[in-house]
Amino acid sequence: MPKLVDHAVRRRQIAEALLSVASARGLHAATMREVAAEAGVSLRLVQYYFHSKDELLAGALEHLAARLGERVRARTAGVEDVRGLLLGALSAVLPDDEEGRRVILTYHAYYAYELSRGAPPPQGAVDSAALEGLLAGYVERAGREGRTAAGLDAQMVAAELLAVANGLGISVLTGRRDGEAALRVLRGCVDRLVTS
């Protein structure tokens, strides 16, 4: 009897292999053959699921976005207070553990790769907009609860918070700060925004 293959699992396995190669050596170094070797599958199998490197990159970016979403959900699970929700979501973009380092480093590899080709990655813009939307919702909730200054533009505040978190992520990746120091800065931003 032929072995049944879960195609979604196989696609994730290949996408994970690309992310592993990308976080270690960058996307420019990631060939389909190298991804196949990392995944422990044949090049033809990689080509079966992803017909070109661009398709492979797009598929892996979707997988990367899902992993970032999992980090956000894990860091906000069971949190009721809006301040904790903001801090949890923002901290998900900090490379303060091995998984975060891989996720954030790989996002930066995508940005560098696409920008070197002359175009920003569309999925990266979608992911950023989704996270900003989530943060804006938390800011709006804080406003409804009377815990922020009146008249704040929630979308603008969310963009500012995410920009700070992304900048802190780079400072952690480059060794200027550790994860705890970056988290303290984020906590200060959230504390100034949301009253007790």
Rank of each mutant, 00 (worst) to 15 (best):
V5S: 01
D6S: 11
H7F: 08
V9L: 14
R12K: 02
L18A: 01
L18I: 09
A22K: 02
S23H: 08
R25G: 13
R25I: 00
L27G: 06
H28F: 07
A30T: 07
T31G: 14
V35D: 03
A36W: 00
A36K: 03
E38P: 00
A39M: 00
A39F: 03
G40Q: 10
G40R: 00
R44M: 09
Q47V: 11
F50A: 01
K53T: 10
K53H: 12
D54H: 08
D54Q: 09
E55Y: 07
L56G: 08
L57P: 02
L57D: 03
G59Q: 05
G59A: 03
G59P: 01
A60Q: 02
A60V: 02
L68W: 03
V72C: 06
R73A: 15
A74H: 06
T76Q: 08
A77W: 04
A77C: 02
V82G: 06
L86G: 13
L86Y: 08
L86K: 05
G88R: 02
L90T: 10
L90C: 08
S91I: 01
D97N: 09
G100C: 01
V103P: 02
L105A: 14
T106R: 00
Y107Q: 13
Y111M: 13
A112L: 08
Y113A: 03
R117N: 05
R117V: 00
P121Y: 04
P121I: 06
Q123W: 07
V126E: 14
L135A: 11
L135K: 14
V139H: 08
G143M: 10
R144V: 07
R144F: 12
G146H: 09
T148Y: 11
A149M: 08
L152T: 13
A154H: 04
Q155P: 00
Q155Y: 05
M156N: 10
A159R: 12
L162S: 05
G169S: 15
I170E: 13
I170Q: 12
S171R: 15
V172E: 04
D178R: 03
G179E: 04
A181M: 06
L183K: 02
L183I: 04
L183P: 01
R187D: 15
R187V: 00
G188Q: 11
D191L: 13
L193I: 09
